[in-house]
Amino acid sequence: MQLDSPDREYMCPGHVGCPGCGAAIAMRFVLKALGEKTIMIIPACCWSIIAGPYPQSTLKIPVLHMAFETGGAVASGVRAAQDVKGDSETTVVTWAGDGGTFDIGFQALSGAVERNENFIYFCYDNEAYMNTGVQRSSSTPYGAWTTTTPGQQWKRLRKKNIVEALVAHRITYAATASIAYPEDLIRKVTKAKSLTGARFIHIFSSCPTGWGLPSEMSVKIARMAVQTNIFPLYEVEEGLRYTINLTPKGYLVNEYFRLQGRFKHLSETDLTHIQEMVDEDWNLLLRKAGSVPEIF
């Protein structure tokens, strides 16, 4: 299958991501859609490392590396400065992991969205603090092993629903996307770029290192997350209009969980419970969308 995406590359080869890194795939496609007139803020996350040490950078756009919790605030300042200089053309984006978005950076993100700052916030979600060695975040899903939820203390709490939290702010545009659906991802980035105000794109980015997964399974597992309704693809405009972009084939969650080392301790009973939670979330989303979903 030929992928229909812009030819131009804004990410050089030679980055220092792990083999099969979903966050590296996500960056590549997002930059193709954003183009060169982009300033990127990267708060502490895997990408603080992946982009390479001084004096090298794998990205062909201006990048401002920043402290962990500052993604929303720094973008606000960059946007303000570009506006003062009369530059309305440059797209200002924040590129953060789930820890910097769901946890420590949530206040600054919420503030920036409440102020409707004119920027796009990307969260590449690998469901734990991977850069520091796989510690749990509020994005870590129910059932997961991490180095801070080891043994019998695996995480028995739900993953925070970040998109719904931002929809509650009546954010201009919020969408989920996946490295397994690059055309959908590129379309959403292009759409977000055409809008004004605070925009948020939540990208499911698998992590072979942290998930106990062969690197060649990175994209496949991301596709399975969508097709099992674990990570549905949808978008919300003005915090009101929901569109579900893909109607999954309704696969059961079991195979998705069985392929990953981080879930190997789960029993059939646990998986049944997880299936119930996934079904419940999907039905909630269907009700919000208010209609039969479109076919992707």
């Binding site: 720094v74 300042g77 400065a81 200089k85």
Partner: peptide, 18 residues
């Protein structure tokens, strides 16, 4: 902004733009 931490973070962003 919503905190002093963000006040300085925003200025770091702005000052980095010159």
């Amino acid at each position: 902004v919503e905190s002093e931490h963000s006040a300085l973070a925003a200025l770091i962003g702005a000052a980095s733009c010159g």
